[in-house]
Every structure is written in structure tokens, then in C-alpha cells.
Design a binder for these strands. Structure first.
Length: 194
DNA sequence: ACGAAGATGTCCT
DNA sequence: GGACATCTTCGTC
């Protein structure tokens, strides 16, 4: 049992906050997570897996500890960690973090962007880490992208998830309290409550 | 085969 | 605060 597998054991709502402080690495770039969201498959109307298995979301139906990548608005590649046993399509969206290695590379990639904004938001985080759709399904213990448990932040907060239309009031977003790299909350224009 | 929506970011007023 | 870029995925016809 790897350290990551231990960290990912249990219900996704409990796993997600434990991922705060973990380090995601792809090549020279590493990001320490400061903000994540839990998505709970068939029990969660906001999840990509709510309506069952499709080609896009199949990774979340597989074993825990794999990377689920999806394309958002034709531009942004966002990353998730699959959670839960096979058949339960839970996942944790990597929403924001602090670049802790390879910051020169990311600065060069994003001229004029403040350091704290380099991975502030799921699209920016994906871009900073060089996530691509072909990395979908990567084993996060042995693959090109890895997640390593890290020191949890001193204080964490939770609240509703950002930008989801359905189940917009579930407090399944977790972040490092007061951290400048946490993205701003935006409620969906036509949000449905629970 | 077609169309609408989207777990966003950026630029505009 | 609001428009819009951009293209894949999925549901429906």
C-alpha cells in the first residue's frame, strides 16, 4: 500500500481536505495544493459521472489514485484524482495551488502573471503543470504525473463548490484558510441548490 | 449527424 | 458585472 493509497482511502468528502498540502509533480514543475473540490459520482448531480459511465469519465470509475483529465470550454485542461474503489466514480478536482518547484519554467510560460496566480484556478493549475488530455488515466504513484502527500495547511476552510449549476450548496470545496493562491468563489448564474 | 452546454479565464465597460 | 472565446463530449434526433 503506497502512501498515496493510504491518503485516498475513505469517502471522497473526507479524502479531499486531506489532499491539501499534497504536492503534484509533472516533470520539472511541482505544485502544492491549496484548494480542492470533492465530486461523488452517481450521488452527486454536479459530477461528470452522475449520468453514468462514458468515455470521458471512465477513469473515475476505475481504481483510486489515477489522473482524470477533461477539457473545459475548449481551452483548459483540468485535473482530478480518482478516489474510491472500482465502480464508485468519486474524484477530487485540483482547483489551485502554489508552485513550489520549476517556477522559472512556469513564469516563462505565463509572462506578466503574478506568482500567486500561476496555479490559481483549475485551468491555470492545469496549464502550469502542463496537463494534457493524453495524460488522462495516468497512475499518480508511478506515472509521469505524481501526487505525494505533504504537510497539511495550518487551518482549512470549506464552502460551496465554484461554478457548478447542480448541487450548488454542498460544502464540498476545501481550501487553505487565508492562502493567497486560493481562487475566488463564483456561484453559477443559474445555480440549483441541493 | 446535429446542437447545446460546459467543475474557466480574460478582456471589456 | 458581463460578454465571449473555443472545441470536446454527450444526448438527442
Amino acid at each position: 500500500m503506497s502512501a498515496l493509497a493510504d491518503l485516498l482511502a475513505g469517502p471522497v468528502q473526507e479524502v479531499a481536505p486531506r489532499l491539501l498540502g499534497a504536492v503534484v509533480r509533472h516533470g520539472p514543475v511541482a505544485v502544492r495544493l491549496t484548494e480542492v473540490e470533492a465530486y461523488d459520482g452517481a450521488d452527486d448531480p454536479a459530477s461528470h459521472a452522475f449520468r453514468g459511465r462514458t468515455r470521458r469519465n471512465q477513469v473515475m470509475f476505475g481504481p483510486a489514485g489515477h489522473l482524470y483529465c477533461y477539457l473545459s470550454h475548449g481551452i483548459h485542461v483540468c485535473g482530478n484524482v480518482s478516489v474510491g474503489p472500482e465502480g464508485r466514480a468519486s474524484g477530487v478536482l485540483l482547483r489551485a495551488g502554489e508552485v513550489v518547484d520549476g517556477i522559472d519554467v512556469v513564469r516563462e510560460l505565463r509572462p506578466g502573471v503574478a506568482d500567486r496566480d500561476l496555479a490559481r484556478g483549475p485551468g491555470r493549475l492545469g496549464r502550469a503543470l502542463g496537463l494534457r488530455l493524453d495524460l488522462d488515466g495516468t497512475d499518480l504513484t508511478t506515472g509521469a504525473v505524481t501526487v505525494t502527500p505533504g504537510e497539511p495547511p495550518p487551518e482549512t476552510s470549506c464552502g460551496p463548490r465554484t461554478g457548478v449549476r447542480h448541487a450548488a450548496d454542498r460544502a464540498w470545496r476545501f481550501w487553505s484558510t487565508g492562502d493567497p493562491t486560493v481562487s475566488p468563489y463564483r456561484r453559477h448564474a443559474h445555480a440549483n441548490g441541493l
